[in-house]
Each structure stands twice: as structure tokens, then as C-alpha cells.
Computed example of a mutant assay.
Amino acid sequence: MKDLHSAFYENLPLLRDFTRLADPAQFSPMPDDWFLGVADIVDSTGEIARGRYKTVNTVGAAVISAMINAMGGKLFPYVFGGDGAAFAIPPSEIEAARDTLSAMRRWAEEEFSMPLRAALVSVADIRKAGRDLRVARFAPSSGVDYAMFSGGGLAWAEAEMKAGHHMIAPAEPGAQPDLTGLSCRWSNSPARHGQIVSLVVEPTASATERDFADLAQSVLSASEELERAGHPVPMNGPPMSWPPPGLDIDAHVSRNGRNLFLHKLVLLFQNLLIAILFKTSKKLGQFEPEHYRTMVSSNADFRKFDDGLKMTLDCDPATLRQIEHLLKEARGRGKIRYGLHVQDEAMMTCFVPSATRDDHVHFVDGASGGYAQAAAAMVR
């Protein structure tokens, strides 16, 4: 029989209306003895300026894919932040989380020369610091659901990590996290209605939960008027081209110590077969290309709550002006901080445990800086 305490997250209700997440009552307190893991890339803004944003996204998503594999099918809450990620696990999984974060730090440095910070902090310590950690489950489709966080605990843990507290040391040289399933062969999705807007909104210390909930509801109401609520990925999935963009990154992710050049050749051949399947819409065994493309769009995580509101929207100029007006008014009252970054395309980073099931995960961000650039604009 399952330990009901460890199955806390699995037992939470699934919400299917994203706008309901503006209501704080939809979030449940995390158990005191659970742990929060956080990781982010050191100087991600500088890495983006050097043209490495797809790599930044991949390393951030790799934290989640490595944890999913380490958990062996057990459900747990996680959130992708563009240049990093966060997750929560019960005490029984603390060693798996520590080993995974340790391996991730070593791998990111060796494979991409990209320093990664990582930390683990108990929920009890978060509450001792006067913050909270609450979680909800949002299901954008029948195939997947994503965690949403509130309470200020996630932001506090990230600040603690950046100050050097609760840090996880890198593993020994050569350590390899299990990144099976982390790959994205899609091209970027161009804006269809104006521009791709990456938005990060956070409450200030003077804002009550109700203040922020009201603002979030207003912003969501504006975005709901967009086609498909601003979903930046077309209904039949993003474009696909050959050779695929980011082949070099994919090769680094999946080579697992193999020769990089030879592994690229293998991936080129694999991707050619995949491109042909999608071009012809031919079934291969249980794999149905058209169904898969539709599920890619349905499963895409383009908006989230993680101690604030983050969205990547395909936004027309009038709606963008409306959203900016709401944000400027709330900032003028000292209730929020926010940042926007505008670009021409959206990109995806994908975790696909099986192409014949519907539980593949797709993280959406802006293609030229996205959430990381929006967050940088917020603090200027």
C-alpha cells in the first residue's frame, strides 16, 4: 500500500481551468517534512547574450527530466523557469534528489561549460523563515499535469541558494544524470498575432494574497481574449525541419559519454526518419504522427504560477497594451514587480518518455531570452 503522506501530491485534485489558479484557496500546504529542490544557471543573462539561450533552456529542463527519471514513475511537483527549475519531494526521496542535483552540476559544467547552482531546503525551514510552500495541480490536457506553487517559499529558497546556503556540491568528474527522454526536434513557433511576449509578475512584500490574486485574474482575463488564450504553439504542433535546430545540444544531452561526432550522425539519421513520418503522416506501429502533434500543443506548459505569474503568449498589440496598463497600475500602487520580454518566436524544450503515450512534457519559453530576460528587466 502507498504511504499516503508520500502520495500527498498525487492525491491533490486536478484543476482544468487555469484561471481558477488565481484563487489562493486552490493551493494546498506542502507537508512540513518535504524538501524543495531549486537549481539555476549562474549568469544566465550573460549566457543568453552569448547566444546560448537554447542551451540555457535545455540545462534548466534537464534538472526536471533527471528528477523524473530518478523518481522512477512516482509523481512529484516540479516547475520549469527558463534558466532553472524547482521541485518538491518527500523525505524518502531526499538521497535521490541530492544525487541527481549533484550529478547535474557536474554534467552541466563538463558538457556545456555552464555553471549550475543547486540547493535543497526543507519545507519546515521555509516556514521558520516566515514563508510558505503551497501547491496545486493544473492539467492542460488528459495526458499531463503541471505543478503550480504559491506562498513565497520558492522565491525564498532561490534567494537562499544564490546567497550560497543549502548548496549541493558537484559530483565527481564524469558523473552522468539519467536524461533519457530529454530531446526536442521542433523548430521555433513564429508569432501569428503580433509578438511572443514572455511575462514575469511577482508580488511585493506590501501586497496581500488577495491583491495579487485580483491582479493575476485581471491579466488572465485579458489574455483569455486572445486566440486559444495566447497559446504560442499551433494546434497541430510547431514546425519541423531537417536537419533539426539544436542538433549539437541534443547530441551533448544524449551521448552519455559516446563520441560526439558519431552520435550526431546517428541523430541526423533518426531525425530524418522522424521528419519523413511527420511529413507523410504515416503511422509506425502505435505511433500516430497527427495525434502526437496535437498532443504536443495540448500538453505545452506556456503559463504557470510559481510564487508569481509567468506566461509566454502569442499576443496582439492591443492586448499587450491592455496587459501593460494593468501591470503599470499595480506597480504604481507598490503591489507587484514585473518584467516583459518581446520576441518573434517561441521555443520548446521537451521530455518524451514514450512517443506512443500522451504523457510527453513540453516547456515553452520565448526564443530570444524569454523568462530570463523578462526577470532581468524586472530588477533593473
Rank of each mutant, 00 (worst) to 15 (best):
residue 5 H to M: 13
residue 14 L to V: 02
residue 15 L to E: 07
residue 15 L to T: 09
residue 16 R to C: 02
residue 18 F to L: 05
residue 20 R to H: 10
residue 21 L to T: 08
residue 21 L to F: 07
residue 24 P to A: 02
residue 26 Q to H: 13
residue 27 F to W: 01
residue 31 P to N: 09
residue 37 G to H: 05
residue 42 V to T: 12
residue 48 I to G: 06
residue 51 G to P: 07
residue 51 G to Y: 01
residue 57 N to F: 00
residue 58 T to H: 03
residue 58 T to A: 03
residue 64 I to N: 03
residue 65 S to I: 01
residue 69 N to Y: 01
residue 72 G to Y: 01
residue 72 G to T: 07
residue 74 K to T: 05
residue 78 Y to R: 04
residue 81 G to N: 09
residue 84 G to K: 04
residue 84 G to H: 01
residue 85 A to H: 02
residue 88 A to L: 04
residue 95 E to D: 15
residue 95 E to G: 13
residue 100 T to W: 03
residue 100 T to I: 02
residue 101 L to W: 04
residue 102 S to E: 07
residue 103 A to L: 00
residue 103 A to W: 00
residue 106 R to T: 08
residue 107 W to P: 11
residue 109 E to K: 15
residue 110 E to T: 08
residue 112 F to S: 04
residue 112 F to D: 05
residue 112 F to L: 06
residue 112 F to M: 06
residue 113 S to G: 13
residue 116 L to V: 03
residue 118 A to R: 08
residue 119 A to F: 02
residue 121 V to M: 11
residue 123 V to L: 06
residue 123 V to E: 05
residue 124 A to F: 05
residue 129 A to C: 04
residue 130 G to D: 13
residue 132 D to M: 12
residue 135 V to P: 02
residue 136 A to S: 14
residue 140 P to K: 13
residue 140 P to M: 08
residue 142 S to G: 11
residue 143 G to I: 07
residue 143 G to A: 12
residue 144 V to N: 14
residue 147 A to V: 01
residue 150 S to R: 10
residue 153 G to F: 00
residue 159 A to C: 10
residue 159 A to Y: 11
residue 161 M to D: 11
residue 171 A to P: 03
residue 176 Q to I: 06
residue 176 Q to V: 02
residue 182 L to M: 14
residue 184 C to I: 06
residue 192 R to I: 00
residue 204 T to N: 12
residue 205 A to S: 15
residue 206 S to R: 14
residue 206 S to D: 14
residue 206 S to W: 04
residue 209 E to D: 15
residue 210 R to Y: 11
residue 212 F to P: 05
residue 224 E to P: 03
residue 225 E to T: 15
residue 226 L to H: 09
residue 227 E to D: 14
residue 228 R to H: 14
residue 230 G to K: 01
residue 231 H to G: 03
residue 234 P to E: 11
residue 235 M to K: 12
residue 237 G to R: 08
residue 238 P to Y: 03
residue 249 I to S: 08
residue 249 I to Q: 05
residue 250 D to Q: 06
residue 253 V to T: 03
residue 253 V to I: 05
residue 256 N to K: 14
residue 257 G to S: 10
residue 264 K to I: 05
residue 264 K to H: 06
residue 266 V to H: 10
residue 268 L to M: 10
residue 268 L to Q: 12
residue 271 N to H: 13
residue 272 L to S: 11
residue 274 I to E: 12
residue 275 A to Y: 03
residue 276 I to N: 06
residue 279 K to D: 07
residue 281 S to I: 06
residue 281 S to R: 15
residue 288 E to L: 08
residue 289 P to S: 11
residue 291 H to P: 05
residue 299 N to V: 05
residue 299 N to R: 15
residue 300 A to H: 14
residue 300 A to N: 15
residue 301 D to I: 03
residue 302 F to I: 07
residue 304 K to H: 10
residue 304 K to A: 09
residue 308 G to L: 10
residue 309 L to W: 00
residue 312 T to A: 14
residue 314 D to S: 11
residue 320 L to F: 09
residue 324 E to T: 13
residue 325 H to Y: 13
residue 328 K to Y: 14
residue 330 A to F: 04
residue 331 R to E: 15
residue 334 G to L: 09
residue 334 G to C: 12
residue 335 K to N: 08
residue 336 I to K: 07
residue 337 R to L: 13
residue 347 M to N: 01
residue 349 T to E: 00
residue 349 T to N: 00
residue 351 F to N: 03
residue 351 F to K: 01
residue 351 F to L: 13
residue 357 R to V: 01
residue 358 D to I: 08
residue 362 H to E: 04
residue 362 H to A: 04
residue 362 H to S: 08
residue 367 A to W: 00
residue 369 G to A: 10
residue 376 A to P: 00
residue 378 M to P: 02
